[in-house]
Design a protein around this nucleic acid. Structure first.
Length: 803
DNA sequence: TCGAACACTTAGTAACCCCATA
DNA sequence: TATGGGGTTACTAAGTGTTCGA
C-alpha cells in the first residue's frame, strides 16, 4: 500500500469526524439507557447462540459425506469461498489507484450538506427514541433463530459475460408482440373460456410426465408416444393458453374483464360438547359461546411453545377478556388458573378421529373440497379461467408472529362480509353477499390485481385474495422481474465502479449509500425498510443495520478487514457472516461507527427510498431488490456451469443442480428448521446404504465365482450366467451410488431451504436450458406446481439460453 | 415532502396427501 | 392393508416498493 493512500484515508476520516461530532453529542444522552438494555439483550442472545452449537458436528459430517460422493463423481469442487476472495482482492487492487482527489472543497461542501441532512437526522432520532422506549417497556428479549453454520456464502462474482450472450430487451421496454384477442374495452363480455379445468389438468399432468422436451423444437409432443396419445397431448397443448405470446395490456391496466364468486368464509364456530369442560381454579365453568371460541384457540395451541411465552399469554388474556361477559370477566382474572387441558385433549381426539376415517368418508370430504374449489377457486379474467391462490378468508385465531413479535397471542378476529371489499368488472356477475349480510364495498378497479380485500385487526394491514402464480397476471410480472435483472447484468460493472468511486465521496450520504449498496450487491442483503417500533419484531435489513449488528476486525483468521455481521433479518432469521471487505469499505465503516452507540443506525444518512431513488437514476427499474434477483440467478448459472459434469449420470447431475441451488440459498440466507425427523431419516437411509453395500459384496462374490466357472466350463449357459452376474453388480453399484448421492444431498440440505430461491429468485429459463442441455427431464427439477408457474419459461427457453 | 396507505412479492411452517415398504 | 416418511400445498406473516394525500 502506498504512503499516499494511508494519508488519504486518514485525511478523509478526519474530515468526517469533525463534521459528524455535533450530531452525536446531541444524541448521546438519549442513548445511554438504550445501550444498557441492548447489552442485556445481547447477552441473552449469546446464550441462545451457544445453545445452537449442536449444528457444528453435522457440518463436519457434511464435509466427510462430501468426500464420499466425490469418489463417485469427479470434478466437483466447493472452492467458492476462495474464488470469491480472489475476485474481491482483484477488484480492490484495480480500484486502489486514483483515489486521491480534490479535497480542498471538502470541508466547505460538508457544511452545505449538513444543513440538508438535518431533517433526515430528525427522523432517525425519532425512530431511535421510539426504539428506546420500546426496549424499556418490553420485557421481550431478542431471540434469533439458530445460526446457519456457514461463514461466508459461496459467491463468485466478476465473471466475464459469457460469450455469445445477447442482451434481451427488458419487458418494460418493448411489449411482447402478438395481438390480443380480447382487446376490447372494459365493458366487454367474456367469450369462450379457454383455460383447462383442474380435472383436465390432472389428466394432462399424467401424460405430461412422459413429455420430455428436447432440442430446439418448441413442440413438446413425445416422439415415442402412440399416435392417439400424441393427438390428445397436442390438443391439450393447444388448449393451454400461451399468454406470453400475446400483447400485454397498456400500462397500469391489469385486466379488462374480471368475474368471480367472492370469498369462502371460515365455518361458523361449533360449540364444544357438554362433557368437554373448561376449568377455572379447578372448578368447571360454562363459558359463553364467544368466550369459549377464543378459549378453544388457546387450547388448540397448548402443545406449542407459543403458549409458554409471556407476551403471548399476556396478549391473549387481554384480548380474551374483551370477549367475555361481565360475569366471566369478574370471575376469570388470572390466566394461570385457567385449565384448557380437557379442551385441548378433545381437539386431539377429534384430529385422531379425522385421521382414522374410512376411505369413503375421506373421499366424501375430498369431493366436497373439490366442489368448493371448482366453485370458488377460479375466476374469469379476460376470457380465461384462472386459478385463485387463496379464496378462503383467514379464519379467526391467535396471531402467531415470528421471532419476538410484540403482538403474538392477540386475537385475530373473525372476518365478516361487512369487512369485505369485492373487486370485479362492472358488467360481471357480482358475487352476492351471504344471506342476511352485505359487502363493505364493491369496487371496479382494473388497475389492481386483487379480487377481494379486507383489513386485519392485528396490524391494520390489508389482506388480499389474488390469483395463483400460474396465472397470466402473476406470470407476466415474474417474467418482467427476471428481464429487469438481466438488464442489470449489462450495467452492473458500471454501477460497481460508481459505488466504488463513491466510497471516497466528500458527502457522507454518498459514502453511506455506496457502502450499503456494496453490501446489497456482495452479500445479497435485503434493502431494510424502516419499521414502526413496537408493531413488529425487531428485525433489520441493510439500510436499517445498527452499529451493534456488525463488528470490525482489522485482521481475523489470517484475513484482513473482516466484517462480522450478526443481525435478525426477515422472519427473525439470523444472518451471521464474516466477510473480508475492501479496505476502503472497512475504513468507511469505522467512520460510520465513530461516536455512536450500539443501538444507533449504522447508515444514519440513508434509507431505502434514498437508495432506491439513486438506483433509479443508475438504471430504469432498478431497486435494491433487483440485486438479489440478479445475483441469485447469476450465481445459479455460474455454479451450474462449474459443477455439472456432462459424463455424470442423472442423479449425479441433479446433485450438482441442487448444489448450485444451495449456493444461492446460502447466499440469500434461506434457512429452515431442521426437520424433526431428520436424524431418524438419515439413520434409515444409512441402514439402506449399509444393506446395499452388503448386497454389493455378495454380488461381487457371485460374479467372481461365475468368472471362475466360465473359465473352466466355457459353455453357453455359464457364459450367460456370467453376463447376468456382471449386470447384477452394475445394477447394485448404481443403486448404491444413488443412495449415497441422496444421503449427501439430504445432509447438505439439513438447514437450508431451496424452495424459496427456486421459486422467487432463479430465472427458470436457466434451469430449463440446463435440463435441455444435459438431457435431464424437467420433472426432476420442477414439480407440477412449479412447472405451472414457470410455463412461460418451459415454453420459451432453449438450451442456449443465457441469463 | 413525508408518512401512511396500498399493492404486491417473498418467506417459513404446518397440515395434508400419496407412495413405497413391510 | 397399515404405516412411515417425504414431497406438496395451503396458509399467512413479513418483507419491498409505489402511490396517495395532507
Amino acid at each position: 500500500m502506498s504512503g499516499d493512500q494511508v494519508q488519504n484515508d486518514s485525511q478523509i476520516e478526519a474530515d468526517f469526524r469533525a463534521n459528524d461530532s455535533h450530531k452525536h453529542k446531541k444524541d448521546k444522552e438519549h442513548k445511554e439507557h438504550r445501550h444498557k438494555e441492548h447489552k442485556k439483550d445481547k447477552d441473552r442472545e449469546k446464550t441462545k447462540h451457544n445453545n445452537s452449537e449442536h449444528r457444528d458436528p453435522s457440518e463436519k459430517k457434511h464435509k466427510e459425506k462430501h468426500k464420499d460422493v466425490e469418489k463417485h463423481k469427479d470434478g466437483e469442487k466447493h472452492k467458492d469461498g476462495e474464488k470469491h476472495k480472489d475476485g474481491e482482492k482483484h477488484r480492490e487492487e484495480k480500484h486502489k489507484d486514483g483515489e486521491k482527489h480534490g479535497e480542498k472543497h471538502r470541508e466547505e461542501k460538508h457544511h452545505r450538506e449538513k444543513d440538508g441532512e438535518k431533517h433526515k437526522d430528525k427522523h432517525k432520532d425519532k425512530d431511535r427514541e421510539k426504539r428506546k422506549e420500546k426496549i424499556k417497556s418490553s420485557s421481550g428479549n431478542v431471540k434469533i433463530k439458530k445460526e446457519n453454520g456457514f461463514t461466508s456464502p459461496p459467491r463468485i462474482k466478476d465473471e466475464p459475460v459469457a460469450e455469445g450472450y445477447t442482451f434481451s430487451p427488458a419487458a418494460n421496454e418493448k411489449p411482447i408482440k402478438r395481438p390480443r384477442d380480447d382487446d376490447d374495452d372494459m365493458d366487454y363480455k367474456p367469450k369462450k373460456i379457454k383455460t383447462e379445468d383442474v380435472k383436465k389438468a390432472k389428466k394432462r399432468k399424467q401424460e405430461e410426465v412422459d413429455v420430455k422436451p428436447k432440442g430446439k423444437n418448441k413442440s413438446k409432443i413425445p416422439e415415442k408416444a402412440a399416435d392417439g396419445k400424441k393427438r390428445k397431448v397436442k390438443k391439450e397443448e393447444e388448449e393451454k393458453w400461451k399468454w406470453w405470446e400475446e400483447e400485454r395490456h397498456a400500462d397500469g391496466i391489469k385486466w379488462k374483464f374480471l368475474e368471480h364468486k367472492g370469498p369462502v368464509f371460515a365455518p361458523p364456530y361449533e360449540p364444544l360438547p357438554e362433557n368437554v369442560k373448561f376449568y377455572y381454579d379447578c372448578k368447571p365453568v360454562k363459558l359463553s359461546p364467544k368466550t369459549e371460541e377464543v378459549a378453544t384457540f388457546f387450547a388448540k395451541m397448548l402443545d406449542h411453545e407459543y403458549t409458554t411465552k409471556e407476551i403471548f399469554r399476556k396478549n391473549f388474556f387481554k384480548d380474551w377478556k374483551k370477549e367475555m361477559t361481565s360475569e366471566e370477566k369478574s370471575l376469570i382474572t388470572s390466566l394461570s388458573k385457567c385449565d384448557f387441558n380437557e379442551m385441548g385433549q378433545y381437539f386431539k381426539v377429534q384430529s385422531e378421529i379425522r385421521k382414522n376415517m374410512t376411505k369413503e368418508e375421506k373421499q366424501k370430504i375430498k369431493a366436497e373440497n373439490e366442489k368448493t374449489l371448482q366453485e370458488y377457486g377460479f375466476c374469469i379474467m379476460d376470457s380465461h379461467k384462472e386459478r385463485i391462490a387463496n379464496f378462503r378468508i383467514e379464519p379467526p385465531g391467535l396471531f402467531r408472529g415470528r421471532g419476538d413479535h410484540p403482538k403474538m397471542g392477540k386475537l385475530k378476529k373473525r372476518i365478516m362480509p361487512e369487512d369485505i371489499i369485492i373487486n370485479c368488472s362492472k358488467n360481471s356477475k357480482i358475487p352476492p353477499a351471504p344471506p342476511g349480510h352485505k359487502w363493505k364495498e364493491v369496487r371496479y378497479d382494473n388497475k389492481v390485481t386483487w379480487l377481494v380485500s379486507w383489513t386485519e385487526n392485528i396490524q391494520g394491514s390489508i389482506k388480499y385474495i389474488m390469483l395463483n402464480p400460474s396465472s397470466r397476471i402473476k406470470g407476466e410480472k415474474d417474467w418482467q422481474k427476471y428481464e429487469i435483472a438481466r438488464r442489470l447484468k449489462s450495467c452492473v460493472d458500471k454501477i460497481r465502479n460508481t459505488y466504488r468511486e463513491d466510497w471516497k465521496s466528500k458527502e457522507m450520504k454518498a459514502r453511506q449509500r455506496s457502502v450499503a449498496l456494496y453490501f446489497i450487491d456482495k452479500l445479497a442483503l435485503r434493502a431494510g425498510n424502516e419499521k414502526e417500533e413496537g408493531e413488529t419484531a425487531d428485525t433489520v435489513g441493510c439500510c436499517s443495520l445498527r452499529v451493534e449488528h456488525i463488528k470490525l476486525y482489522p485482521e481475523l483468521d489470517g484475513q484482513e478487514f473482516v466484517v462480522e455481521f450478526d443481525f435478525p433479518g426477515k422472519d427473525s432469521i439470523r444472518y451471521y457472516n464474516k466477510v473480508p471487505v475492501e479496505k476502503r469499505v472497512f475504513k468507511n465503516l469505522q467512520l460510520f461507527m465513530e461516536n455512536k452507540q450500539p443501538e444507533d443506525d449504522l447508515f444514519d444518512r440513508l434509507n431505502t427510498s434514498i437508495l432506491n431513488k439513486h438506483l433509479q437514476d443508475l438504471m430504469e427499474g432498478l431497486t435494491a431488490k433487483v440485486f438479489r434477483t440478479y445475483n441469485a440467478s447469476f450465481t445459479l448459472q455460474q455454479q451450474l456451469k462449474e459443477l455439472t459434469n456432462a459424463d455424470d449420470n442423472v442423479p449425479a447431475k441433479i446433485l450438482s443442480y441442487n448444489r448450485a441451488n444451495r449456493a444461492v440459498a446460502i447466499l440469500c440466507n434461506h434457512q429452515r428448521a431442521a426437520p424433526k425427523t431428520f436424524e431418524k431419516s438419515m439413520q434409515n437411509l444409512q441402514t439402506k446404504i449399509d444393506a446395499k453395500k452388503d448386497q454389493l459384496l455378495d454380488a461381487r462374490r457371485e460374479l467372481k465365482s461365475a468368472k471362475a466357472d466360465a473359465k473352466v466350463r466355457r459353455d453357453e449357459r455359464t457364459r450367460k450366467m456370467l453376463e447376468s452376474k456382471k449386470k447384477a453388480v452394475q445394477r447394485v453399484e448404481e443403486q448404491l451410488m444413488k443412495l449415497e448421492v441422496q444421503a449427501t444431498d439430504r445432509e447438505e440440505n439439513k438447514q437450508i431451504a431451496l424452495g424459496t430461491s427456486k421459486l422467487n429468485y432463479l430465472d427458470p429459463r436457466i434451469s430449463v436450458a440446463w435440463c435441455k442441455k444435459y438431457g435431464i427431464p424437467i420433472e426432476k427439477i420442477y414439480n407440477k406446481t412449479q412447472r405451472e408457474k414457470f410455463a412461460w419459461a418451459l415454453d420459451m427457453a432453449e438450451e442456449d439460453f443465457v441469463f
